[in-house]
Design a protein around this nucleic acid. Sequence first.
DNA 1: AATGAATGAGATTTCATTCAT
DNA 2: CATGAATGAAATCTCATTCAT
Lengths: 199, 199, 199, 199
Amino acid sequence: MNKRQIKKDKKRLLIIESAVKVFARKGFYNASVSEIAREAGIADGGMYTYFGGKDDLLISLFEYKMEDILTRFNSHLKDISDPLIKLKEFIKVYFQLIQEDKNLAEVFQVELRQSSKFLKDYHNQKFIDYLNLIAGILQDGINIGFFNPAIDIDITKIMIFGALDEMARQWILGSENVYSLKDASEQAAQNLVFGLLAN
Amino acid sequence: MNKRQIKKDKKRLLIIESAVKVFARKGFYNASVSEIAREAGIADGGMYTYFGGKDDLLISLFEYKMEDILTRFNSHLKDISDPLIKLKEFIKVYFQLIQEDKNLAEVFQVELRQSSKFLKDYHNQKFIDYLNLIAGILQDGINIGFFNPAIDIDITKIMIFGALDEMARQWILGSENVYSLKDASEQAAQNLVFGLLAN
Amino acid sequence: MNKRQIKKDKKRLLIIESAVKVFARKGFYNASVSEIAREAGIADGGMYTYFGGKDDLLISLFEYKMEDILTRFNSHLKDISDPLIKLKEFIKVYFQLIQEDKNLAEVFQVELRQSSKFLKDYHNQKFIDYLNLIAGILQDGINIGFFNPAIDIDITKIMIFGALDEMARQWILGSENVYSLKDASEQAAQNLVFGLLAN
Amino acid sequence: MNKRQIKKDKKRLLIIESAVKVFARKGFYNASVSEIAREAGIADGGMYTYFGGKDDLLISLFEYKMEDILTRFNSHLKDISDPLIKLKEFIKVYFQLIQEDKNLAEVFQVELRQSSKFLKDYHNQKFIDYLNLIAGILQDGINIGFFNPAIDIDITKIMIFGALDEMARQWILGSENVYSLKDASEQAAQNLVFGLLAN
DNA sequence: AATGAATGAGATTTCATTCAT
DNA sequence: CATGAATGAAATCTCATTCAT
């Protein structure tokens, strides 16, 4: 890779990180390109060299970060074979990521929702990959007889994602009486695995 | 109640219903006040007689519809004493409501999320009431020994809400290979109550 | 005069007084017809029965009040023959009127200025009558040899009006270190009559 | 100073001059930002790069022009020591300025009056400086015994300002039988210095 | 005659995007 | 490549006036 390319990539990243901050602060629609530029320390029209526009910036942000996240999930989970532990670990890593970068989390949790509307055409492969991480764990669990074979994987993966997602969102938004992410993590694992019933 | 007041209330409702349609179609930020007015068959500035502005319209819409929803939940659940059946019924009613008014569901599921930004200050009592419906069921279940006393209600109510919410959202957004809401309903109940483990 | 006519006149007056208050508070352009109606305790569109519109209301207000003012000046000054005393008395009455109704004064001082623009066509006879009050005093003074015959009455009447007007305006607007209207009155008379020169 | 800054300053000035023309023609409230832009030959939203809004434009206009005016007064008067001549010269220069830029004069005389409403908070230092020019002349005159020591400077400076101001305003507004500014200038000096009394 | 909801033109302002320097 | 001024479309909101009740 030549020097010029490296420099360009650095700038792309800089703009993405700035956008994450500003989107988290203001929301996608209320964030102005100008403010992102200011945050990045570049000129107003500067991002147009690196991204096609505000929409493209959001998509690129999502793709870039999602790739990173998927990589991290994979590297954390690849050596675990027990699906139960894998699920627990998945939940733990998920909340860790949220905690590490609250700004990014807010963008994912809150802002990407709304954008699903105007980004309808955008085929969201990374999100599908992400859901399939969960699906994979479920499938493994069923295969080796740990998980209930009656589970509909396509439904349940979304259910699990939603459960974790909402717990994270409330933690991010909530100022008062919020649980710790550690508690959330343990409770989620407990509930998902064993259900609500008393034994 | 006099005639004028009745007419006014009708108009308020008409505008709310129109807004639901347009928000569902375009999203909150991409919906223009003009378009809502056109949908409602009133003049461009017409909604300002009934609502303080676009934001207020969204909040009012939320309050109005949420009240209706809470009433329906309560009337459906009030005579059920078994918490297990109550939970199942809650889930069923939830998905029924989604199916009945897809537009409203879309606004609630997708558009109101983004607005959590500007709804941050707005103390969202109706949403709290809704969460407490779930909390109540959980509490009852624990009290009579059906549900696991180790359950943290404040965490779990959010988890359940999130799980159902995301299942509904994917059903609304998903054009391809979506599950039926009936399947979703049953699967959700199954998973929540018994957990993922095989017996 | 029949009863109906009396009632109508009362309402006209009520609206004028309300308009005075609101114009004083907000200025002509920033005052809404609705706010004037609220102040008057009538319906929003109510003033259109009595006045042709917002502009007409301002003109009518001016005419009505100016007539009153001219009457009061005339009744105060009619028995004074000494032009010097007449001038002093004119000044005194002028500031008395200002003090009596600060709202009205503000409308006259500040708001009627701006309106001179859009009311350009409106031939302001009452204002001319008012200026001619001053002109009359000057003319008398010159005739009987008290005032300097070199005085150009048409210029000087405006000068005197401007001097008093500005003193009144600063008193109305000024919150800090304002003079009393009594001091202003005496100083004005002193300066106008004797000039700035030391004797 | 770099080229870009010079260009920006030029544009600011262009917009101010255009605003003066349009405000003079239509009045502040009836002038639209669009029309000012058209007059300046820039795009509709163009002035927002240079000014915060319509109000800010008016204030900036005032500050900019007033600074110029104060400079001109000072350079004209600085070498005159005789307070009597200084006063006469002040009046002459004042009417000269009015004559030179009738548009600006109209804005100052007519439009800024109305704005005293929204300029109320805005601490108007430039206007105070201007009044103090007059105060300085009066003080000098009293000190060297030319002017009557009984003069209250704070009242009289306002009186003189008002007298000149109104003479100017009537000249600007008046289409029929107006005096020449030369006559006004001489008459004002004569009246102020010697008073109305015949000797 | 009074009411006040409805109208709809028009105003200010924002901001993504472009492009000359 | 970077800059940031300029563009101009579009959005929200206001409000004088009308008119059915």
